[in-house]
Write a protein that binds this DNA or RNA. Structure first.
Lengths: 184, 184
DNA sequence: CAGGTTACCGGAGAGGTCTCCGTTTCACCA
DNA sequence: TGGTGAAACGGAGACCTCTCCGGTAACCTG
């Protein structure tokens, strides 16, 4: 996932510089090649890869904060809405994040892609599990649905063309997904 | 999508050779670089790209036949099963094709990806529409669901890791999708 | 504070995708 | 049966991802 911050100060420095460069690159243009990021950081491409073995791992590091927000949102929503509304609200937020912040989309996409790198996608699964548990307890959702299956289904959000009524389409599909979870 | 067969015989020949080379490459190894396919066809990479502007367009041309099979299957299923069983059966078949034939997966993925190139993804939408219409007529499915939304949802099938219980997961998710379409 | 280990660095290189454009060749017509 | 213009060809080149390994220098230890 991420190289552990070891004793070497140069390693830590480079790690920092890479994150800064990546953040700049992403906020400026919404995307950049790894080569360009390494160059911007004044570091060799090899160094970038040692610190962040995959493209996602870099992005995850960048957007850890936002993802955490998403995760924390689940219990917050549950606190002041009925379970179903909370679930649907959370889905909406996922969609919104995805359209807004390139990085979050990337991560969820990667997570859903079966990257199996539990480290950072487990929390997302956990958030979903929480939301679903509330609905199950209430009797409105069917029990025994695997939250990972649901995360996987959310992956559809990133195959929707954003312009041209994509927002409406996303809403419709989220409705379908929720309906699929309802107890009959 | 595909270059129109013009008067030039060399164009037609190369088109043919590319298809043959691609088919060989895909059946032999399940996948190949475009460079390799062009080389195998004895043609420049530029020629390959002129005939097939995108990777998908090449694969679509290759698997047009299989996709047609899938499309024809919809009415066949409807003829000898109740609508819901037909729908679910068709979904299963899509999943099976996807795991079996690389190309079909590619196409549906591309189609669902909003490639907007109606030419070859409209038939898939139409197949779904047929299946759904039967369910609606029978009263078991909700009306007014956009078949494209459903096709989009099927895209999840190609984010499932095939090994490691992927088959079971696909079945579970297809159940969820169908449940989402049921009238409540 | 000198020397040795060893983690870390950087970039060359392999292999891909896709574009661009100078060159070749075909089909048509006088 | 040429001659000719448009269409098709092909590969160099720009740019990307990712790997590998010889060189470098930061820490530790005596």
């Amino acid at each position: 996932m991420d190289v552990s911050p070891s004793g070497r100060t140069d390693a830590r420095t480079n790690h920092e510089r890479l994150l800064v460069a990546a953040r700049e690159a992403f906020t400026v243009s919404g995307g950049a090649s790894l080569t360009a990021i390494a160059k911007r950081a004044g570091v060799g491409i090899g160094t970038l890869y040692r610190h962040f073995p995959t493209r996602e791992s870099l992005i995850v590091a960048l957007y850890r904060h936002d993802i955490q927000e998403l995760i924390d949102l689940a219990p917050a929503l549950l606190a002041d809405r009925p379970p179903l509304a909370a679930l649907r609200g959370w889905f909406d937020e996922v969609a919104r994040y995805g359209q807004l912040k390139y990085g979050v989309a990337e991560v969820i996409h990667a997570a859903a892609g079966g990257g199996l790198d539990d480290e950072y996608y487990a929390p997302l699964v956990h958030a979903i599990a929480q939301l679903m548990a509330a609905g199950v307890a209430e009797g409105s959702l069917k029990p025994d649905v695997d939250p990972e299956d649901v995360l996987l289904q959310l992956g559809v959000l990133w195959r929707i063309n954003p312009d041209n009524g994509g927002q409406a389409r996303a809403a419709r599909i989220l409705d379908l997904i929720v309906d699929g979870l309802l107890r009959r």
